[in-house]
Design a protein around this nucleic acid. Sequence first.
RNA 1: GCGAGCGUAGUGUAGUGGUUAUCACCGAGCGUUGCCAACGCUUGAACCCGAGUUCAACUCUCGGCGCUCGCACCA
Length: 577
Amino acid sequence: MTCFMEEDRSRNLLSLLKRRGIIFPAFEVHGGVSGLFDYGPVGGRLLRKVQQAWVDHFLRLGNIVVIDSPTLTPHSVLEASGHVGAFNDHASECAACNAVFRSDHLLETHHSNPDSLAAAELDGLLAEHEVACPSCGEQNWQGARPMNLMFSTRIGATGGGRQAYMRPETAQGMFLAFPYLYRHFRSRLPFGAVQVGKGYRNEISPRQGMIRQREFNMAELEYFIDPQEPLNLDLSPWNDRPFNLVPDPQGPAPDPSQLTIADAVASGVVRDATVGLFMALTHDFLVAVGCDPKRIRFRQHEGDEMAHYASDCWDCELHGAYGWIETVGIAHRGCYDLEAHEQATGSKELRAWREFDEPQSVVKDVLVPIGGVIGPAFRDRASQVNEALAALEHLPESLPFELTLGSGEVVTIEQNMVEARRIEEVARGEWFLPHVIEPAFGMDRIIWHIVDHAHEETEKEGEPYVILHLAEGVAPYDVSVLPLFEKDGMGEMARALNQRILGIRGIQSQYDSSQSIGRRYARADEIGTPWSVTVDHTSLEDGTVTVRRRDDQQQIRVGQDDLCDHLARGSVSSLFS
RNA sequence: GCGAGCGUAGUGUAGUGGUUAUCACCGAGCGUUGCCAACGCUUGAACCCGAGUUCAACUCUCGGCGCUCGCACCA
């Protein structure tokens, strides 16, 4: 029964979203494309406001900047990041029952690294090891086919050109901006960059409405830290708010619990304090944009679910019409990403400098080549000899001695060719790869849940009535201005007031005069407009207007100046006692 | 991707091998009313796309696209 009603509710919500121009399937006139959606005339502003609230929320940390990088990404970047491998799996289909499996999963027990194999090799191994279909037990595989989850394209208009993909995440742009970020922050960790934008994944079959899309809005934060720097994060501001935690069932505290973030970090349930900090900040954000705290939980990745480089990973899940859905992933990525790009490119700019407390002096015995002797003696091999001498870890017991060159060739070094010297090198610090904490937000999933949590179906005088209790900060329209009746000058006064309100920075107002006043209130409630302002007969006499609060339909009367001041300061609610 | 079901105004729906279609809400205009989806009049708007069968297809068949569910995939 509850299940049925829940299904009903989400169907009603879906048609509301379409009817009121919030979210609807894209390109419907052409038949629609699965996995693509429009934010409409009302939803467009909802999306922008949520995105802006997100950016503002994290900029408040003070050491965060916003960047914006291309969605079009060259092959080499995504190869280095591991996406080309991870997103280019092969699938094998059972000819008997049509079940589809990832080819490498089928071969896991027969090959150490099936991920790396080509289609023909996969087919060969499936046959050789007589792998049966897990679903029907037959051994009748169709040829393995690549499933490329990235949208592929080429950079260059005349064919040829460079292989590229539409980015599957925004993160790589931030990793590769590291040298600029490092300079901007005057070479001092920790700092972070955020980016809000589109990501693309060519899903095999997108389902569940906007929960899984082919083009989606993401918001990601990369927070760069020095892993050796002692953390002194103050998590006590969240001590009054225990969070719902679902820890790794194989971990030390496997049972779901309610813990403050400080306790969770202190007891090791959350393994990293910075991860804990971002969990708390994530929670704050979701509540600020209108998610119900009771329907927010954090779930820790199980050991085998976590990417190999990550040391801790928590998903923030929201509960709604589709059950618990992952909306934010907060991962400790170690130095994986920067290291991967460093290795792929040889760049030396992806590191940060760590000053030692005390300069460390290293005393070293070396053999300094004497060029005047080495040169004539070895001629074109002289530079190899010099390199080999410089690379010596231990000096030979005595001279002459046999020196192995980089080429493998062995030469004899005579006493007169080198000078033994003791040198002292002072190291003031070292270059290291920063570690990264990455909170990654799926904006569309968050917006779905904002709307879901805000959507109230109630009754008014026996009739069904819908109110979208959107948080003031994200509501598409802040206010709607309604003349009680469009005559005797009420229409003119209301239009003038509407125009005046539109002049307030960041405030959107909607003038509505069609049909009865009750119907107009209902329309405003349905798209979540928090305030309705009505110009009535009294307004004509003394200039005051009434303000109606969406959430309880309470009404008060105020002067127009007063109203505009409060709208500008975002304090309209203080007008109500 | 496979299987099952489905696809009719903005939304929710009715219905039929025979003059392109029901109802409600919805939207617009005018009037009455004058603070919570009021009333009257007028008006707007749909058979997913394509092929086939047929004298005739919104209706039957096939294909495509889309939606829902299950399996699989994915986070």
